[in-house]
Design a protein around this nucleic acid. Structure first.
Length: 424
RNA sequence: GCGGGCGUCGCCAAGUGGUUAAGGCAGCGGUUUGUGGUACCGCCAUUCGGGGGUUCAAGUCCCCUCGUUCGCCCCA
């Protein structure tokens, strides 16, 4: 086969699917705008160093999933694998934290990770994310979360589960890590191979192993929640209280840890049971250390990202497609003069705010009527040689079959009446 | 990166070694040379993701490859 296909892990978003994307983006924009969140657009590639430092050298994303390349000037660049690092870089670079206060920002766009594709996971995928910087207040966590749940609700998703956890601060985590390793080491040979490996490299991640036997061993393992400092504990309690005040239902999951190094305190994950292995639809958490890690002033922050492909999959399963807005006028014509007049009428209709479609086939009127029918148009405008000569057009309402003749130059005089008919 | 399934027309899909690759939807044309939605008729894959092999004979068996899908890893 000589035809060129899309690259592995990428796909086209065809017109039949695009209405779902628009629904998501429209709903999100509206909610974010009401919440005083500003959009930010950062480049799709950045210096490789940014992601390596931001996400953590040892993370899978950085160590084996980045689309990195060298440009003609020998610069080491990477297609962004996530959105947060770029936004934080921009904030620092443009000194946006200088005026103090809280920065509320959101972004949407493609991200890139070199992974094996699966349903709900591609090499080029899209995320919509929120970043709130400059407040360590637990209310910031809850405000960010509430915006996420509002968006999910607005696009009509239900039956999502919301897991919440606190992974404390660096000290809490170090202590817990020690306790966990101490507990697990005697069981080392009983753990699944991946977890055995993680025991030294990243023990916290053993907690969300899917291996049954490992999970069994974890049943009596120490819990992060018992290793939080009093302050961290109080903070987490406050977050839960505030969520309850907003009637946002969540379940505390002490085994929830996140993949990227920069998280601290609040972490959360919203999942759907209808997505198979790629269940997470929105996830995020607090990242108080990231801004300084990237060379900026000490700035507490919380953020999240949603996977748009996954949301689209869920919407498609719900099936309330909103893509077809019916045509108001379908314009058919035959003959050189009539055809050019028809083009003009279409133009006038559109400029007046009607949705008009022009039949370009030049085929027999019978065929053109068939297409008018299929377009689900309310009315059909007909121009043939006879009308062209008189400067008129036939208007036929397709549902009733009522037909009348009008003068082309007086088209605008009918607009008001048509609008009334089309709205009724 | 690892393991399993699948790959026949735009879509759905029969076919499981014998040869002319069913059928449905959509599309196009006609019955209906300027009036649609129904009905009927016709057309629509020298080819079965690609390449190689086995065989007198392959969409049907084998190998490789590409893609896809499910799971692992990881993650949105």
């Amino acid at each position: 086969m000589a035809t060129i296909q899309v690259s592995r892990g990428t796909r086209d978003i065809l017109p039949s699917e695009v209405s779902y994307w628009q629904l998501i983006e429209r709903s999100a924009r509206e909610i974010l705008d009401r919440a005083g969140v500003s959009e930010i657009r950062t480049p799709i590639f950045e210096q490789t160093e940014l992601f390596a430092r931001g996400m953590g050298e040892a993370t899978d994303v950085v160590s084996k999933e980045m689309y990195s390349f060298t440009d003609r000037g020998d610069r080491g660049l990477t297609l962004r694998p996530e959105g947060t690092a770029g936004v934080v870089r921009s904030l620092i670079e443009n000194n946006l934290m200088a005026q103090g206060g809280v920065q509320r920002l959101w972004y949407v766009g493609p991200m890139f990770r070199y992974e094996r594709p699966q349903a709900g996971r591609q090499r080029q995928f899209h995320q919509l994310g929120l970043e709130m910087l400059g407040s360590a207040d637990p209310r910031a966590d809850v405000e960010a979360i509430a915006i996420a749940t509002d968006i999910l609700k607005a696009i009509g998703l239900k039956d999502l589960t919301f897991d919440l956890n606190s992974i404390g601060d660096t000290t809490d985590r170090a202590q817990f890590r020690e306790a966990l390793v101490a507990y697990l080491t005697p069981y080392k040979s009983d753990l699944d191979p991946d977890s055995q490996d993680r025991l030294t490299r990243n023990p916290l991640r053993i907690l969300d192993s899917k291996d049954k036997n490992t999970q069994k061993i974890l049943d009596s393992a120490p819990s992060i929640l018992d290793h939080l400092s009093d302050a961290s504990k109080a903070r987490f309690d406050r977050v839960q209280q505030l969520l309850a005040d907003l009637s946002i239902a969540c379940q505390v999951n002490p085994r929830l840890v996140r993949g990227l190094d920069y998280y601290s305190h609040t972490v959360f994950e919203i999942q759907s049971a209808d997505l198979g292995a790629q269940a997470t639809v929105c996830a995020g958490g607090r990242y108080d250390g990231l801004v300084t890690e990237l060379g900026g002033p000490e700035t507490p922050a919380i953020g999240w990202a949603m996977g748009l492909e996954r949301l689209v999959i869920l919407l498609q399963k719900l099936g309330n497609d909103t893509s077809v807005t019916p045509v108001d006028f379908y314009v058919i014509s035959k003959g050189v003069v009539a055809e050019s007049q028809a083009l003009k009428l279409v133009q006038q209709l559109r400029q007046a705010g009607f949705k008009a479609e022009l039949d370009l086939s030049g085929s027999a009127f019978g065929k053109q009527f068939k297409r008018a029918d299929r377009s689900a148009a309310a009315a059909c405008l007909i121009l043939g040689d006879a009308e062209a000569e008189k400067g008129t057009a036939q208007l036929k309402w397709l549902a009733s079959g009522d037909q009348s003749e009008l003068v082309q130059s007086e088209l605008a005089s009918h607009f008001e009446a048509w609008r009334a008919v089309l709205q009724g």
